[in-house]
Write a protein that binds this DNA or RNA. Sequence first.
DNA 1: TTGTATGCGTTATCAC
DNA 2: GTGATAACGCATACAA
Lengths: 346, 346
Amino acid sequence: MGKKKKVTFSDIAKFTNFSKTTISRYFNDPDSITPENQQIISDALVKLNYQENKVARILANGKTEFIGIIIPNLYLHYYSEMLNQILCTYEQYGYKFLVFIGNENENTERQYIQELMAYQIEGLIVLSHTIPSKELADLKIPIVAIEREDLYISSVNTDNYSGARQAVQLLASHHCQIMLHINSPTKENIPAYGRISGFLDYCRENQIPHEMFIEDLGINDEDLHQKFTCILDQIQMKYPDKKKGIFISNDTYASVFLNLLIRRYGKLPDDFYLVGFDNSPISRQAVIPISTVGQQINKIAQESMKLLVGLMDSQKKRNPAPLSEPVHKTIPPLLILRDTTEKNIF
Amino acid sequence: MGKKKKVTFSDIAKFTNFSKTTISRYFNDPDSITPENQQIISDALVKLNYQENKVARILANGKTEFIGIIIPNLYLHYYSEMLNQILCTYEQYGYKFLVFIGNENENTERQYIQELMAYQIEGLIVLSHTIPSKELADLKIPIVAIEREDLYISSVNTDNYSGARQAVQLLASHHCQIMLHINSPTKENIPAYGRISGFLDYCRENQIPHEMFIEDLGINDEDLHQKFTCILDQIQMKYPDKKKGIFISNDTYASVFLNLLIRRYGKLPDDFYLVGFDNSPISRQAVIPISTVGQQINKIAQESMKLLVGLMDSQKKRNPAPLSEPVHKTIPPLLILRDTTEKNIF
DNA sequence: TTGTATGCGTTATCAC
DNA sequence: GTGATAACGCATACAA
């Protein structure tokens, strides 16, 4: 049995004694043909078992309805949940997504972008960090960046700065006497730097004693564990009698730190108050659920698509403006109170 | 400024005084033209800033290099990591992926499949459970199922049965006197049922006392917590003096159960031995790292692609066999020993 | 409301 | 080694 050829408009046209044009119109503007003829065509479609071919349609009308996504990885919950939310917007906008995993390699990502361009994507969502926004802007297609350097392109980010301030404010409201911030080295031009500046600004403005532990915390578990043990020792040495408010740059780290405390003291000591960042599952699943600055991933995804669709629509006009100035949107974080700060609950 | 038209083979042909055919050959069979002419064309490409158009190529040669993926969600680590691994095979095979989130709605997923077919996907990877394999087989395209009902289609699955046996064997080796299995209701025709049958078979064969707790464990955290509290109470009531080996159907549940124990007793009691399933991050990140039956997600992804690519290749032949009998591959799990069983470490 | 002719950008089939 | 020409399947002016 050979491979059966696909049914095309020609076949339907012959079968129904209409022209291909009429068949085309049946799909794109049904009301322009009589109801009876609609029915005839409709019947023919099922009788011939027609399957539409959008590739041909693309070539003819230029609209691929493809959006490219370049995302660093999916093992961090933040990224996989963001992708989840973005993909789900298909229901709303109908755009299909071509997804590439960045893998932190600049040239590989350039190749991915070429591939995406070859498939005539109408827009691009970038979460990976490697390629400078200047270069991305040169692609001359609508682009939205999420939580990365975004000088030359539009973007949607969590308000990291205000999130950090809220975290410290929460710790201050529990009368913590010394504020500690644990983070890895962060460039000033990416949104996450707001977690550092927000911490510093709030402490300074309110004259609260504070210290930062900025360290490359490694990737593997042992490294992480060792670094945190070291940091904990320092903290206990320097501030033995003070009520400590600790703001940690993400929930994964916060959980490691919490586990360290639990295993050392059998419980979260009374003079330790913890706040993480992200509201990732681990913050809920921890032995003692961790208070955290929650990123509203669904809203970020929504806003990104809204922004991107807007840009793409304006490109479809007869006189597409030369991709106007970048727009930067900001989504407020949500402070989530759990047991590492709300101890009165016990 | 109007929208500048894209550069096509025609433009390059005019510019270089070759024919479109030669330009095409430059891309698809460079050695069929002289090196000098290759250079001329190459120069013209950069001079004109040519961007290839794969959509036109698809229409002409029929090969989309698209693979469709339907996956239930991305908030479960198992799925997001699987998607991660699948997407990364782009480097190896060059196939591009169109990803849809299933959302557990049968008709929605049917729609997604129609959309994928319209984009002429060459193959399909299905992780969602809603559509029966019988119906999928009727699509007449290469399909690989992962960890779902797979009677009529090819599949790659973890050897759940052997995994469960290994778990119980591990618990037995630590002289647990009563084996407990906690799981939610599972249909017999999906691979995960092996976790139940493996548990039962091993216990029966070795005449080990055992009990199963099969309960719909709900979705939200409170439900889960309450159900597990109830189960723990039962266990303590029934088997107060026995060394308990508990095999839990996944790491998320295992972590909830562990946290319950820690919060109640301040530590993992000496007579409790725990084994989870999946080797998801939570099993490492738990206060006490959880022993688990690790799924080799990377291997599953690799095997799935290998299988699918094989099926797709055989479809491209002149006489494509009518999609032969389904092939079912099985990937062995990896038993991972951590602190919830290896207590001698303390 | 319907049909004709042409175009979308590439590949494939022949020629030469 | 290179070129002319016809597909590929659909959309869209323009005509009727």
